[in-house]
Design a protein around this nucleic acid. Sequence first.
DNA 1: ATGACGGTTAACCATTTGGTTGAACCAGGC
DNA 2: GCCTGGTTCAACCAAATGGTTAACCGTCAT
Lengths: 211, 211
Amino acid sequence: MTSSPTPLSEYSETEQQIFDAALHVFAREGRHGARMQAIADAADINKAMLHYYFEDKETLYEEVFTYTVERFMASFGASLREASTFENTLRAFIDGYIEFVRSDEAAMRLMIQENLAGGDLLGAHLREATNAGDAPPQILVETIASAVDAGEIRAVDPQHTVLSVVSTCLFFFVARPTVQIMHPAAEDDWGAFVEARKDHLFDLIYHGLAP
Amino acid sequence: MTSSPTPLSEYSETEQQIFDAALHVFAREGRHGARMQAIADAADINKAMLHYYFEDKETLYEEVFTYTVERFMASFGASLREASTFENTLRAFIDGYIEFVRSDEAAMRLMIQENLAGGDLLGAHLREATNAGDAPPQILVETIASAVDAGEIRAVDPQHTVLSVVSTCLFFFVARPTVQIMHPAAEDDWGAFVEARKDHLFDLIYHGLAP
DNA sequence: ATGACGGTTAACCATTTGGTTGAACCAGGC
DNA sequence: GCCTGGTTCAACCAAATGGTTAACCGTCAT
């Protein structure tokens, strides 16, 4: 279920094990809470190997985080290809974005950890991308703005709307333990619950935007 | 802006300082990432005082967390008093819930930290409350179910709907650093942004539920 | 064979961190 | 004054943690 985060191809096998393990431990314990020994254990290697492949904890974190944030931003746009109707676009985005997060929950948790801890490193990356013009959600914002202009949907604020869509797609992953206690269905079969959630979210938001 | 989390009244002043500081540090760095020295610094006291008032790190965390989770659950129901129309109820809940989180963001961050870390302690508290019948969101679920039965809103799944409402109310706080980079308005005046968000969320969800 | 080299390991070191201690401080009651 | 109780602090200690080292493989070119 929790797949490997498809690290860089130029990495050796051991490097990928470390990378993978570090992502999961950092995602769970946070930048400072994570212990090098825990990462070594998760990667099933000797602690010294961590420093052989990555200089120190800080460097390891930065490499893992940088790679994760880039993958995250790429996934944003990837879910938006081929826009026919706005209805199809919204459906494709919700499905695609949720599918991406499901395939690598640890990546998302790491992003949230950064936010909780102040998001300094995150800020640097995002500002860079934003200035370069390829800020991830900008595409969706424009899609919604166009739909508003074309009269396809009500005159909502595109920025706020995108934030709402993203919120609903991500939050139930963030609070997964809580959700699984509250919703018996989510506890029994998480996969089915995620599918049901895609349908519900599209239905709710599409009706919320309809004229 | 970041108000004090109104600790238990039976606490002495020093105890409250510690409690308050611990909440903020745990919320930012997580259960294991938090350093006792950091908490002592934030509380502006000597490190030995922490152990004078609270046995050890684990106990301190548990007391802070227990108190936080209880306050959180109470706030859930508190936002639902006096339901006339469903429209008013929804509006009151969104406003009240967001206002509660705004008044104590650290409490919410602590809850999210617990979720990211697996939520074992959280699970114990929630299951207890759920079995006792006073599970926080149960009231909202029933309100929505009634509205569906009365034909006030479309035939949506109440459980999923509540999760969606809560997602949108909480997520922009969780990802506040990211949101502030993406939305210039949120960076300039967070308070005004939160207000705008209340309006937007009510508008989006109310239309999403309307028949 | 051998030696150079990437990879791997256990043992080790220095610093940080959680936690303790004994003395000092500071009321209020006698 | 001086005792007593709760409170506060600097210094201290043992364990945990990040990071290093020197030796040890295995293998491949010479």
